[in-house]
Nucleic acid binder design. Structure first.
Lengths: 332, 332
DNA sequence: CCCGATATTGGATACGTTTTCATGCATCTC
DNA sequence: GAGATGCATGAAAACGTATCCAATATCGGG
């Protein structure tokens, strides 16, 4: 029952060599062909697995990569995580995952946990304004942001979708359809998109039509419903995330606003159900999985280069949730 | 730049005590009030964080918990993961996540990785027939299955939803509506549900109406489309997962089958988009998050008791995707 | 044939922690 | 007051590995 696990010493003994030799053979160091073969044979026979514990302690790094995201339940973040896991797996690296709930405090807590674990590489979708990340930098942890860039942190490379362009094409599309009162329904950490939205809309921008919810479903729904109730004159909404999009659809339905007749909707991120919705949702697709994968690549390559981050393209996928707004207002 | 991290030895030196005392103070051992306070003060001043590396090596266990699931992209598994993470976080334990893609080989590979990491607790949604789990048991790793139980493994406790009951009520509901030709659209690892389906249907069962897809979206769609094409006489479908349900909706739409007029659909698992779909989908809700949470509880409590697993209730949520099937067949 | 260079090898050390054990000291009991 | 008991404490060992370093074996050139 309580069998001691086979160590490198056992292998060394059984193969009649020193532990140093075994270690070298297994780490790809130099050794004579015959010793190498003998060691490998014995190791296989004993079903020896080098203990990451010993190795990590010796080289003072856990070798794992930490992944911090707001909510693993959200398909989008799930896809980012999937990309990270795929890349990490091909590199043989374990991934420690934590969810921040978009709470900087919780994020800091998790950062502490990762540091304690000796993780030396972290990928994060950052929550706060980025000053919670001083500890990782100080500890020499290679850090890469994904999906969002953090306000005050230009010293951390980030892999993000081209939000600016995405918002731009979406707004152009809507204005091209004749919309003038366009609302933005945002979530946490979307400064980029917000500024892009304001810029794209130019003189048309109406600050009252910009609403920012917290991360939760309830908050998103409340924000959407409040927006629709207070401003029945708006004709189009840009939802900055699939949770917000979902909330918009539900709130619209609740208030008897028909999409797209009464309200045009564009949602950030192409999720599977966008096509199932009625009407199918026009979306700004983001390469979620690629974001994760590229971030993992970056973090695995090491912080030597300074690629200053990666910008991935977005794509407007037109389905059925936007309608033209003629000069004649539908009286409703 | 290359600062050595502060160790317990530094704290001991600065506080004028031995390392053993520091360790005791920090692990809640006995110490005189004054020394305790001094050590804590110094530790705080130096911003000392005990290294999990050293501790893990010493007690020969990483203290982390491993989580293996088929696909982190799937909302359902995401919710299970969320439950696990929540419980693990409250216990301060890191979680190493891996995705198996429902591939036993890949699963075995990941198990190896977890063992190498010295993980001593694993939660898994198992992929294969369960003989890939011999290594963890042999290594004394506390293992708990979630969501599925593995064929040959009755020595591993499992936390699962009451599939049998869920299938039963769904089938009863459909037969109550007059349906006779009911299909089952299944995925990997659903022996439980399949047998429950056969049993609930009794003499009505038609083996040709039972289709099992692999885990992917494509495979699910192919299975659904194939089923609908080959058997236009079926009137109801039970989809054993949200991926399958999605595929069923898409395939039905493609083949111009109207839900629920031409085809009634019940889907396993209540996902957010079930309500957004048109018509809203009738589902069998499973407590996904609870499954994860309870599994984590089980695995954290340790393998001492033998609770033989946990069975969580399911609930049929009736929405709009099922219609009564009168005695008169709609001629179509 | 000898010497220097090179390749291979194993002993020893260090990584940071927990835990055992022995020691010293104060208090308690009879 | 002497022995017993308890507590706080620190030295040291161990966990499993990678790597430094010295020692040995092998080889080539002169």
């Amino acid at each position: 029952m309580n069998m001691r696990r086979t160590t490198i010493k056992d292998v060394a003994g059984a193969a009649g060599v020193g532990v140093a030799t075994v270690s070298r053979v297994l780490s790809g160091g130099s050794a004579s062909p015959e010793t190498r073969e003998r060691v490998l044979t014995v190791a296989a026979q004993l079903d020896y697995r080098p203990s990451a514990l010993g190795r990590n302690l010796r080289q003072r790094r856990s070798g794992g990569i930490g992944l911090l995201l707001p909510d693993i339940t959200d398909t989008f973040y799930g896809r980012v995580a999937d990309g990270v896991l795929a890349c990490a797996r091909s590199a043989g690296e374990p991934v420690i995952v934590g969810t921040t709930g978009d709470d900087p405090e919780r994020e800091a807590e998790l950062i502490g946990m990762l540091l304690e674990q000796g993780v030396d590489r972290v990928i994060a979708i950052p929550s706060g304004d980025g000053d919670g990340w001083a500890p990782t930098l100080r500890a020499g942890v290679i850090t890469v942001f994904a999906h969002r860039l953090s306000a005050g942190r230009d010293d951390i490379p980030a892999v993000v979708a081209d939000d600016r362009a995405g918002v731009g094409t979406a707004v152009d599309y809507l204005t091209g359809l004749g919309h003038r009162r366009i609302a933005y329904l945002g979530g946490p950490g979307q400064q980029q998109r917000l500024s892009a939205f304001r810029q794209a809309l130019g003189p048309l921008v109406d600050e009252d039509l910009i609403v920012v919810a917290r991360g939760s479903r309830d908050s998103a729904y409340a924000a959407a419903a409040g927006l629709f109730q207070h401003r029945p004159d708006l004709t189009a909404v840009l939802a900055g995330g699939n949770l917000l999009g979902e909330a918009a659809v539900l709130a619209a339905r609740e208030l008897d606003l028909r999409i797209p007749r009464d309200l045009s909707l564009i949602m950030f991120d192409d999720v599977p159900w966008a096509e199932l919705c009625s009407p199918p949702l026009t979306v700004i697709a983001q390469p979620a999985r690629d974001i994760g994968y590229r971030a993992a690549e970056l973090v695995l390559r090491g912080g030597t280069r300074r690629p200053r981050g990666v910008l991935l393209p977005t794509e407007l996928i037109v389905r059925g949730s936007c309608a033209a707004r003629g000069t004649s207002r539908s009286p409703r």
